[in-house]
Design a protein around this nucleic acid. Structure first.
Length: 931
RNA sequence: GGGCGAAUAGCUCAGUUGGUAGAGCGCCUGCCUUACACGCAGGAUGUCGGGGGUUCGAGUCCCUCUUCGCCCACCA
């Protein structure tokens, strides 16, 4: 997947430009990864087919082929890329399989809009021409999004790029249909479905999205036959459907209407009698307790109609206009014929009002379903559609999650999944579209029974029974009928012998948004069990949504979106990625300000720049020639700072490992205690950032500057440790910020040409978790430096001025501090003099952990009264803390019941605080006593 | 109508077996200290939504209220 050409050549080999420029660096690096085949998975190496590596597989949720990258895609694919790169470094044979979705309705709508501009409709072109044109459009403009993904660093295996409408995947779709049909799980149903009058197709339940709407509830009076003085009042939100009414229903237990059941009312306007029936569906509490029954235009009414064997006249056509369609003889008066349903509503209400039939109209809140693609109000409509029977498919999918074979993260989705799966309804898979997989069903005009359909893997040329011509079903399949096969079909299914399928199925983690949990995830799980006999993945990572500062979902129509390409252009892909990963708790939404990209992405940009500058520092001070091998260093060679940073690196690695968690469950299924483990990418990012910035850059680099400038063996040690630690940091960070880390890694001393950070190994923490004494000593130095800086800042000592301090140190520390005088002088700009007791006089006083006391005489700078006040405040604070600590320690319940390590820690803290209290009191006595 | 989630520093959010709170951005002060001003050093800020309970001890567990958000549902 080539991305845009680098605009300038990369900087000279041995130096880094003063300013990091992602716009030139990133495309060049991506190109090299591509050329080196870093992202191409080798099925033969999968241990499942006898290779030497465990596989790790992610399938990319295929974006719509016509889609343009938005932040949601950025978020989704960044998470996947972090996982893919991490797994790759962990030595897995990693396959991240990309692709696109032909997106039936969505794509067809786009092309129809284009046609509309030319004054044409798809019918003007005809089916064949229209499909050709759409295919050409997809060919031409499709897949832009994949290139955009490449430019944010996606390490997908582009050699395996899939497409739901490709010939291979079309075979899979047909195979799935035929197998389900053969198993009796696909049937043609005649029932009320959701119909979009704009897209002119049926929709699945999931595709018809309910929206809270303020409508009206109309009370209409239907006179009772034979007793014109009395009438039944029905309540309806959709009076225009009354032309299709075939009955009114009351609850059999509703005493108000007992005597009327079996009689008839006269349907107004049409003046025809319709029966009064009893059915539980009528809720006595709602409205008047009388409901009009329109079987062709309401799913519930349809059920009632079926129970009572009522006729089902269709009075609204496919465009949502009143008209006589089926069984509707004489139902639509000429003056209403062809009138749009909403206008018809007003007209009919008007007619009923004139006839005195409108009792009242009240405001009513209710849910109205809208088409998820074009937002048109969906029309329930009676028609013939293909359905998949879901109950049997749902069983193993439900069990898979219950047993831990699959886990959903965050775990709160388990309940939602469970509920949906347990109450699953049959899936309407036929769409009256032209763009999509044609239903593999043929009809023979000659054969007697229209129910004897031909369902076939191959296109039949003639009727197998009579040899006559056959006609294929006009409908296409729901796009999701191809998507639900994605983890299998992209790997070669239905060819069970396909190497990819054997090497990489089942996959590992599915990363997606919760919005498509039912559309896609649940169905993939069902398909996995139905066709492969196993779950398609072991983890589902459901991430949050990108929202603006008002919490609104970013969308094109609201104009509150952020174009990730703008961010890449301005700040680089790494900045985008880091910001997204660091800002996103597990399953939490990411809030970004579309009006201020700088503010939103400064975090990531600044971090990439920081890394770059650490790299520059290293290169300037160490050069590119190989340094002493880190493994050859002996513990006694190491300085205190060296030991400390190595300990910190170990800790960072361990914490990162814990945050990302295990690659997969230990034995097939997740055990309860590990169900929620890992995939805390924000924690991982924060740990790595803290290590590299607050520890490596802020302390280690500063601590070794002198050593790096002083030739000799110790310089070699410092160089070797610096290179080792920075190398470790780059490895830790690579999955999140791949470009800048790769650029820097390539420049590390001793880098072997042709090797890539992207395919090198993930760092391993040393086996021992105990920290060295030297490392603890460095922390003492840090404490002193921080204390001195605080003193300097507080008393306004000019930065250039060095100050002298007395140290009252316990013997064991004196040697350490004595040896590190130069370091202390540089970092704290303080010269130390050792004394055994605090000298009296005006001075700032700092008590450090471990019993070291610093006294800073500040002739002419110190305000004795101010210092005394400060010491008093410190003492008061300490007393308060100590009091609560001692109260806790005095509490038998705490000592007996708290874990011993907690109690021990509290005791140690108490001892230290008491010692500090004594020092403080003494100091206050000597300094403030005389005042 | 059911179910679920969230409420923590000015803003966006971390806080995984209960042990007296953290980050980024913003803010204040001082610094262009030869890697970095996209930076460095220092600093301020929280009755962890209200109330009740369990516990020696609760941001963390239970109940309840308030406010937001999401999902599901055949009440016309």
């Amino acid at each position: 997947m080539p991305i845009s050409e680098p605009t300038e050549s990369a900087p000279a080999p041995d130096q880094l430009s003063a300013q990091y420029d992602p716009a030139t660096t990133e495309p060049a690096i991506y190109e090299r990864w591509q050329q080196a085949g870093c992202f191409t998975a080798d099925a033969a190496r999968s241990s499942r087919v006898g290779g030497d590596r465990e596989p790790y597989t992610l399938v990319m949720p295929p974006p719509n082929v016509t889609a343009i990258l938005h932040v949601g895609h950025g978020l989704n694919n960044t998470v996947q890329d972090v996982l893919a790169r991490w797994a790759r470094m962990r030595g897995r044979e990693t396959l991240w399989l990309p692709g696109t979705d032909h997106a039936g309705i969505a794509t067809q709508n786009v092309v129809e809009k284009q046609l509309a501009k030319e004054g044409l409709t798809r019918q003007d072109l005809g089916r064949e021409k229209f499909v050709e044109r759409t295919a050409a459009f997809v060919e031409e403009t499709g897949g832009v999004i994949l290139q955009q993904l490449a430019s944010i660093g996606a390490s997908a295996d582009w050699s395996r790029t899939a497409y739901t409408f490709s010939p291979e995947l079309s075979v899979a779709v047909r195979e799935a249909f035929v197998r389900l049909y053969e198993r009796g799980l696909i049937y043609k149903g005649h029932r009320v479905i959701h119909w979009c009058p704009r897209c002119l197709t049926s929709l699945s339940d999931e595709e018809a999205e309910p929206q809270e709407t303020t409508g009206a509830l109309y009370h209409l009076a239907y006179p009772i036959e034979g007793d014109a003085s009395r009438s039944l009042v029905v309540a309806t939100t959709r009076p225009e459907t009354m032309l299709g009414d075939v009955a009114v229903a009351v609850n059999p237990n509703d005493e108000r209407y007992q005597g009327l059941i079996g009689k008839h009312v006269i349907l107004p306007i049409l003046d025809i009698p319709i029966p009064i029936i009893a059915d539980d569906y009528a809720d006595p509490e709602f409205g008047t307790g009388v409901v009009k029954i329109t079987p062709a235009h309401d799913a519930n009414d349809f059920e009632v109609g079926r129970r009572h064997q009522l006729p089902m006249p269709v009075v609204i056509d496919e465009h949502g206009r009143l008209g006589e369609i089926a069984d509707a003889a004489g139902r639509v008066p000429p003056e209403l014929n062809g009138v749009d349903r909403f206008e018809a509503r007003d007209r009919i209400v008007e007619m009923l009002r004139d006839a005195g039939r409108l009792v009242k109209k009240e405001v009513h809140q209710h849910n109205v379903r809208h088409c998820y693609r074009c937002d048109t109000v969906v029309e329930p409509r009676l028609s013939d559609q293909w359905f998949v029977r879901m109950t049997t498919l749902a069983e193993p999918a439900l069990a898979g999650v219950r047993t831990g074979r699959i886990r959903l993260l965050p775990e709160k989705w388990n309940g939602v999944y469970e509920h949906w799966m347990s109450n699953i309804r049959d899936w309407n898979i036929s769409r009256q579209l032209w763009w999509g997989h044609r239903v593999p069903v043929w009809y023979c005009a000659a054969c007697e029974s229209p129910n004897d359909v031909i369902v076939s893997r191959e296109d039949p040329t003639e009727c197998p029974r009579c040899g006559g011509p056959v006609v294929q079903d006009e409908d296409v399949l729901d796009t999701w009928f191809s998507s639900w096969l994605w983890p299998m079909s992209t790997l070669g299914w239905p060819n069970d012998r396909d190497t990819d399928l054997r090497a990489f199925y089942p996959t590992d983690v599915l990363v997606t948004a919760p919005e498509i949990l039912f559309f896609w995830v649940a169905r993939m799980i069902m398909a996995g069990y139905a066709f492969m006999g196993d779950a398609p993945f072991h983890s589902v990572y459901l991430h949050g949504t990108a929202r603006d500062t008002q919490g609104r979902k970013m969308s094109k129509s609201l104009g509150n979106g952020i174009d990730p390409m703008d961010v890449v252009q301005l700040y680089g892909a790494d900045a985008l990625r880091y910001t997204l990963v660091a800002g996103m708790g597990l399953g939490a939404d990411v809030i970004l300000d579309p009006a201020d990209l700088e503010k939103s992405f400064a975090t990531g940009r600044n971090f990439a720049t920081k890394l770059w500058n650490i790299g520059r520092f290293l290169l300037n001070n160490v050069g590119t020639d190989p340094v002493r091998a880190f493994d050859e260093l002996k513990p006694e060679d190491l300085g205190r700072a060296d030991s400390w940073i190595l300990d910190r690196l170990d800790v960072a690695i361990r914490e990162c490992d814990r945050s990302i968690g295990p690659l997969n469950p230990t034995d097939g299924a997740w055990r309860d205690e590990e169900l929620g483990s890992g995939l805390r990418l924000n924690e991982y990012a924060e740990t790595a950032r803290r290590f590299v910035w607050n520890e490596l850059a802020d302390w280690y680099l500063e601590a070794i500057k002198t050593r790096l400038l002083t030739p000799g063996p110790d310089q070699q040690v410092a160089r070797a440790v610096l290179v080792h630690v920075f190398d470790g940091a780059l490895r830790l960070l690579h999955p999140i910020v791949p470009f800048v880390t790769e650029a820097l890694w390539q420049k590390l001393p001793g880098h072997v040409d042709g090797t890539f950070l992207a395919t090198t190994s993930w760092p391993v923490a040393s086996a021992s978790t105990t920290t060295s004494a030297a490392s603890g000593e460095f922390e003492l130095i840090q404490n002193i430096v921080e204390a001195m800086r605080r003193v300097r800042s507080e008393y306004g000592v000019p930065p250039g001025k060095s100050i002298d301090a007395f140290v009252v140190a316990v013997a064991s520390y004196r040697q350490v501090l004595d040896q590190e005088r130069a370091l202390l002088a540089r970092l704290a700009r303080t010269a130390l003099t050792f004394v055994d007791a605090a000298p009296s006089g005006a001075a700032a006083n700092v008590i450090l952990p471990g019993g070291t006391e610093l006294i800073v005489p500040l002739e002419g700078l110190i305000d004795v009264k101010k210092e005394c006040a400060r010491l008093q405040t410190d003492l008061a604070g300490l007393e308060k803390q100590l009091a609560s600590l001692e109260a806790r320690l005095a509490n038998p319940g705490f000592v007996e019941r708290a874990p011993s390590h907690v109690v021990d820690a509290e005791r140690a803290k108490g001892d230290e605080w008491r010692a500090r209290r004594e020092l403080l009191r003494a100091r206050i006595g000597s300094l403030c006593g005389q005042a």
